[in-house]
Measured scan of single mutants.
Amino acid sequence: QIFVKTLMGKTITLEVELSDTIDNVKAKIQDKEGIPPDQQRLIFAGKQLEDGRTLSDYNIQKESTLHLVL
Rank of each mutant, 00 (worst) to 15 (best):
G34W: 02
D38T: 04
G9P: 13
H67D: 15
G34D: 09
E63H: 08
E15G: 10
R41L: 14
A45M: 13
V25D: 00
Y58L: 13
K28C: 12
G34E: 13
K47G: 14
V25P: 00
I22C: 07
E50T: 09
Y58F: 12
L55G: 00
T6L: 03
L49D: 00
G9F: 04
F3W: 03
T65F: 13
Q39C: 07
K28T: 11
K5V: 14
A27C: 09
M8R: 12
D31G: 06
I60T: 07
A45Q: 11
V16R: 01
A45I: 14
R53S: 08
S64T: 08
Q39S: 04
A27M: 02
H67A: 11
V69K: 15
L14E: 00
D31R: 05
R53V: 12
L66A: 14
F3Y: 10
D51N: 04
Q1L: 12
I22M: 02
L7M: 09
Y58A: 14
K5E: 14
D20S: 10
E63L: 02
P36K: 09
E17Y: 05
N59T: 13
T54G: 09
E15W: 02
D51I: 05
L7E: 15
T21E: 04
A27E: 14
T6K: 02
T6F: 05
Q1E: 15
S64E: 12
T11W: 06
V16A: 08
P36M: 03
Q40K: 04
N24V: 11
P37T: 13
V16C: 05
N59L: 10
I29N: 00
G52A: 09
D23R: 06
Y58E: 15
D31I: 07
T54D: 08
Q39M: 04
G46V: 03
K10P: 05
T65V: 14
R41E: 15
I12A: 06
K32I: 10
D51Y: 02
T21S: 03
L7P: 15
Q48G: 11
V69F: 08
K32R: 09
T11P: 11
L70W: 14
E63C: 05
F3V: 12
D57N: 11
D57M: 13
T11R: 11
L49P: 01
Q48Y: 14
D31P: 14
K62Y: 13
P37L: 12
I60H: 02
Y58P: 01
S19K: 03
I22E: 01
K26T: 12
E63S: 09
L66W: 01
D23K: 10
A27T: 05
T6R: 02
D31M: 08
Q40V: 05
F3D: 07
P37W: 10
P36I: 12
N24F: 07
K5N: 14
F44V: 02
D31C: 04
G52P: 10
L68N: 15
T6H: 02
I29G: 00
L55I: 09
I12M: 09
T65C: 12
K26R: 04
K62N: 10
P37Q: 12
S19L: 07
F3P: 00
S19H: 06
K32G: 13
K10Q: 01
T54C: 08
K26G: 03
L7D: 15
S19R: 05
L70T: 10
V69E: 15
I35G: 10
S19E: 02
K5Q: 03
T21R: 06
P36T: 07
I2F: 02
D57I: 12
Q39W: 03
L42P: 00
G52K: 02
P36V: 05
K47W: 15
I22H: 02
T21C: 03
G46N: 12
L66S: 15
V4I: 11
